[in-house]
Write a protein that binds this DNA or RNA. Sequence first.
DNA 1: CGAGGGTTTGAAGTGCATCAAATAGTGTGG
DNA 2: CCACACTATTTGATGCACTTCAAACCCTCG
Lengths: 254, 254
Amino acid sequence: MGLSDLPLEHNESQQDVRLREIMRLLKNTQLFSHLEPGELADFMDAAKTRQAEKGKILYLQNEPSEFFYVIRSGWVKLFRETLDGEEAVIDILTTGHVFGETSVFEDGLHSCNAQVVEDAQLIVLPSSLLREKTQVSHTFALNMLAAMSHHRRHSIEELEHLTVQSAPQRIGCFLLRLCNSQEEGEVTLHLPYDKTLIAARLGMKPETFSRALTRLRQESDIDVKGATVSIPDIQRLVGYTCNACSNAYPCKDL
Amino acid sequence: MGLSDLPLEHNESQQDVRLREIMRLLKNTQLFSHLEPGELADFMDAAKTRQAEKGKILYLQNEPSEFFYVIRSGWVKLFRETLDGEEAVIDILTTGHVFGETSVFEDGLHSCNAQVVEDAQLIVLPSSLLREKTQVSHTFALNMLAAMSHHRRHSIEELEHLTVQSAPQRIGCFLLRLCNSQEEGEVTLHLPYDKTLIAARLGMKPETFSRALTRLRQESDIDVKGATVSIPDIQRLVGYTCNACSNAYPCKDL
DNA sequence: CGAGGGTTTGAAGTGCATCAAATAGTGTGG
DNA sequence: CCACACTATTTGATGCACTTCAAACCCTCG
């Protein structure tokens, strides 16, 4: 049961390795971090893994929520679509992120669409179990509460950014979040995905993104070659970017 | 104790009336609605009422959260301020709304500033009690979870609106939310507060608001005189506004 | 009535979007 | 390893939306 639908491995130990890896992944999420071993086991038993290709729609907005997901690898986009076909990207998630779990506490309908944007391995868990565990276990409910609270703060921050930051500043902010709150010196990093996608994530068009990046290059002395960005002086970038935000760098959030 | 710091009334019964009114108010909030009588009583005992004038700052972002609030009357603005002095209005709240309660489940710091924008009567409750109750009572934690979930959905919606709707559409959406999800016919309503404030709430400048309202008037045939708005044909307004949103009218949220 | 705020209007500027086209990058099959 | 097809990214030209600054108007309240 549970993970037994995985393709059979040559030997037990490889299977074990995979199970341990999944266990470790779950334990690292805010949601599952403080569970008692027994409770975690219940989730492990109900978990299935699934390979999903780029482009795959996992669920649609307003659909009843049957499953929620933890990402082992790859990238997933959460977004909403208006009647006249515009798209608002809510978030883009990767390894260790949990999604689709929020719906459980309202009407049980998903409040976004979810689409794989980079081939992904997903851990699939039944929403019913989540509902049940929350009802039964107080500590789990508290975990859930902490996670939700964190999400909420994140959304509010996004809201602020959209109203207050210019396009180049939003990019700067995005880059700084990739810097792992390093405070000084030179940093080199790689853009995690498509520039078009980053643009959407930041609420702008690809062309605007390109131009805004050029402007940011001039203003803050960073160097961009393809997907590689090197930042010679973090503080300079912070100076340009973070004045238009109410958080001081390093802003310690997801 | 508790509400005993109210100015003394001429007779007991008037005091009672006030207590009953507060009790009713709390029961109508999502947070307190499903409590057992004893639990509600604990909150009632710890509650104080407070009169606060327009302009009064209730708390600041990053301040440790000592209290949270329920509004009896008046209006309160939640906002964030950037280093270079810009302001992002997160929400504007009135009678029956609860605020300042979210901080409890993270680091205990407020994530917004709160300011009274229209003379208000507030019910003040200690954050410590909230923390305690959540730890102790499972049902209360579940209530909290539902409330949080609702908030989160609300924030996501705001995010969508900001990226996808034009200024006149945002105003239209704002008006429609004041219509109490009436579906047809003519509606007359009054703007709840300052146009400058509505503008900020919708993420635009007062001038833009004024012009956008003019445009909305032309597009959707509404009539605006001062703070009075009459909408001869709701469906027409819906048609203009809600195409740029992923929710179908009537969007049933806060 | 006159002062002061909120609100509207006008003129000009800025930023982002749009459309169109050029260029760089990537993966394919030969 | 190259040529080709296809996609991502950049660039240019132009338009629209929102902002800014300045001034007028309007309304309320002392």
